[in-house]
Design a protein around this nucleic acid. Structure first.
Lengths: 248, 248
DNA sequence: CAAGATTAAAGTGTCGACAATCGACGATTA
DNA sequence: TAATCGTCGATTGTCGACACTTTAATCTTG
């Protein structure tokens, strides 16, 4: 048995695949804002907190780096990716691109069962809207869109969506509530599903464009509002965020 | 004032990045066929061969896994991804999706300079066609398409293309010569560029569809032909690495 | 002689250690 | 006082070691 110390406030890591678990834990910490953008991820700190050595932590950090959540600075360590508008735009641009595609694909491969699954998820969206739980709302929203990718049935496309979604969740988590009326969110999914059921590529892409484009503009606006305290998007010399030592 | 600051905006780093170097070396070994699909990547072997320890090798392998070149089997190690038609189709499907998008974007952002760069690359394609060097031809072909992504100016899109291209290079490297007439390759790029210059989204996507779709069908056909005989070629951990120790 | 059991070899997962490097702080100097 | 330089702690990059698993090779045994 391995001498595993007691993780204080962190979920215990029992199963194998330590690296994957650490990556997930780090990801959660990031998207939940416990590791704010710009903050440093100290390997030893994470390792100690989780009761493991630095090696698997490093590997997890590398994965998150390739995924885009972290950036590595050569002899200085890993940092949570900053909130640059450029990056937001690139993510949404790519998401729009693949979600149009996935939606059209999903329409082609839509079965009665998968149609029902989407329907039910819209119901969930409506129910969640009553809860006044923005985080949950965002989560169920993503679940709907993820379902579309699952139906599209391209594993690589799905993985890509998950990667983008993780980063978007971080952004959305930071700016808090995204829409004023949660029911509005739920409703806007209905015409999209209708278009998918109808199977008209043009109508589908139009609705996706509207739907994602709306979120894009909204997030962009809020991020722009949130960014000024940092001045312009000075990319180099990453220390414009002081060692805001909230590292885990 | 801060003590640092090299030239702003330069990626610079590169060199002392052992993990990145190992990842590149492994990638080359894979796309050049020295590590055939299905073969095992033994950490200790690679480490010894490169004169480093296993730690950075593992990190590099993890990156290549996330990129799709390797697959990890929990207590058994990393393996070069096998050549499944399903995977090929997924890659090309995604590539088609993003290349349409990138091409339309590139048209929007096309400057006289970037137009000339594309033109010149087509010239290179023609020149390369005379050399009877299939690998080189494929390389210059990718360079053209990569230029489109550069012009599209979305870093994430570009990274994604690079990831896909690496895997496609592996596939194409394995099936050897892709087209019968290299000049044909070069020529087919011209109407695509013309469409981009004209800036008609429909014409652009049509040409991209034709261009990429052609490669897709061709590769798919060849892979289908090639799959029964190959299957898996489990390699004994032996010397198949760089003829020199360019590392450390 | 084949199928299963046994043992040995190879390889992975993880750890702790150590030198090299970076950044902060304070002493030194103009 | 402000700027420069050197020192020191903190942290990274890399290594070698070790326990446990898987794979192979060998030995039983029906």
């Amino acid at each position: 048995m391995r001498p595993m110390s007691l993780p204080v406030g962190l979920p215990a890591l029992a199963d194998s695949d330590l690296v994957g678990q650490i990556a997930r834990i780090l990801m959660q910490a990031i998207v939940q804002g416990r590791l704010p953008p710009g903050s440093k991820v100290v390997e030893a700190g994470v390792a100690r907190e989780l009761g493991v050595s630095r090696a698997p932590v490093r590997e997890a950090a590398r994965l998150l780096e390739k995924q885009g959540l972290l950036v590595a600075s050569p002899r200085r360590g890993f940092f949570v990716r900053k909130l640059e508008i450029r990056n937001i735009d690139e993510i949404y641009d790519l998401r729009l691109c693949i979600e149009r595609h996935a939606s059209v694909l999903a329409a082609k491969r839509l079965s009665p069962e998968s149609r029902d699954v989407l329907r039910r998820q819209i119901d969930v969206l409506h129910q969640t809207a009553d809860l006044d739980d923005p985080a949950r709302q965002v989560e169920e929203d993503y679940r709907f869109h993820r379902l579309i990718f699952e139906i599209a049935d391209n594993r690589r496309l799905l993985r890509l969506f998950d990667d983008l979604a993780a980063e978007l969740r971080m952004v959305i988590g930071l700016i808090g509530r995204l829409y004023d009326d949660p029911h509005e969110i739920a409703r806007t999914h209905e015409p999209l599903l209708a278009a998918i059921e109808a199977g008209h590529p043009e109508r589908i892409t139009a609705h996706v464009d509207y739907h994602i484009g709306h979120a894009w503009r909204e997030v962009g606006r809020l991020v722009r509002e949130l960014t000024p305290p940092l001045g312009n998007a000075a990319e180099p010399s990453s220390i414009l965020f002081p060692t805001n030592g909230v590292t885990v």
